[in-house]
C-alpha cells in the first residue's frame, strides 16, 4: 500500500505532470542547453540532484520554517545544493562545466524546484518528497534528452557526439541555433498535445462502449 503510493508519486512526475511537457516549467535551461544530447543529460541530472535534496531538506524542515519566511528559506536551501553541484561539476567534469556555463548557477531560479518545494515538499513527509523530486527530476531529464537528441541529430548528424546519420547527410544548422530551440520545443509540445488528446478521446470512446 505504502510502496504503491511512492510509485504513484514517482511516475506522476515522470509522465502525468511532466514538468516540461505538461506543466511548462523550467523553460530557460530547456531551451538554452539542448544543443547537444550530452549537455541535456548533464543539465537534467544536475537539476535532479538539486531537486531530490532540496525536496528532502524542505520536507524535513516543514514544521520548523515559519510560514512568513518560507520563500527566503527555500531560496537558501536550494542555493546551497546548487553551489554543491556547481563546484562538483567544475572539479570532476570541467568540459561539461564550460558548455553549461552560467546555466548551472541559474538552476537556483529554475521554477520546477520552487514549485515542488512549495506545492509538494512543504506538505508531505520525507520519503514521498524524495520520490517526487526523483520523478520530477527524471521527467525533466527525459524531456531534455529527447529535445536535445532531436536537435543534435538534425543539426549535426551526430548523437552524443557519435556520427549516426549517413555520410551524405547535410546538417540543418537551424536546429542548433537559438531559433531552433523555440521551433523544436514548439513542435514537440504540439505532438505531445496531439497524443494526449488522442489518448483521452480513445478513453472516452471505450467508456461509452462499456456503457
Amino acid at each position: 500500500m505504502k510502496n504503491n503510493r511512492l510509485i504513484k508519486v514517482f511516475t506522476n512526475g515522470l509522465l502525468n505532470e511532466n514538468p516540461t511537457f505538461r506543466l511548462l516549467l523550467g523553460m530557460c535551461p530547456t531551451l538554452a542547453i539542448t544543443k547537444a544530447a550530452s549537455s541535456g543529460l548533464g543539465m537534467g541530472l544536475a537539476t535532479t540532484f538539486v531537486l531530490v535534496f532540496s525536496n528532502m531538506v524542505v520536507s524535513m524542515l516543514r514544521n520548523i520554517i515559519p510560514d512568513k519566511v518560507r520563500i527566503p528559506a527555500y531560496v537558501v536551501v536550494i542555493a546551497t545544493f546548487v553551489t554543491i553541484i556547481d563546484l562538483m561539476i567544475k572539479a570532476f567534469l570541467p568540459a561539461l562545466s564550460s558548455t553549461l556555463g552560467i546555466y548551472i548557477p541559474l538552476i537556483v531560479v529554475n521554477c520546477i524546484i520552487f514549485a515542488r518545494a512549495e506545492s509538494f515538499a512543504s506538505k508531505n513527509p520525507v520519503l514521498p518528497s524524495i520520490a517526487d523530486g526523483l520523478g520530477m527530476g527524471l521527467g525533466f531529464t527525459g524531456a531534455l534528452v529527447l529535445l536535445s537528441s532531436v536537435r543534435e541529430i538534425i543539426g549535426t548528424g551526430a548523437w552524443f557526439g557519435v556520427q549516426i546519420m549517413p555520410e551524405g547527410y547535410q546538417p540543418m544548422a537551424i536546429a542548433t541555433s537559438p531559433a531552433g530551440g523555440f521551433l523544436f520545443l514548439g513542435i514537440l509540445l504540439l505532438l505531445v498535445n496531439a497524443a494526449v488528446q488522442y489518448i483521452e478521446r480513445r478513453k472516452a470512446q471505450k467508456e461509452e462502449e462499456i456503457l
Partner: peptide, 21 residues
C-alpha cells in the same frame, strides 16, 4: 487545434528569434 496555446506561442517565438539572428 493542436497549435493553440503554448505550441503556437513557441513557434512564433522561434520565428522571432530567427529575425533576431
Amino acid at each position: 487545434k493542436w497549435m493553440n496555446g503554448f505550441p503556437g506561442a513557441l513557434i512564433t517565438a522561434g520565428l522571432m528569434a530567427l529575425a533576431f539572428q
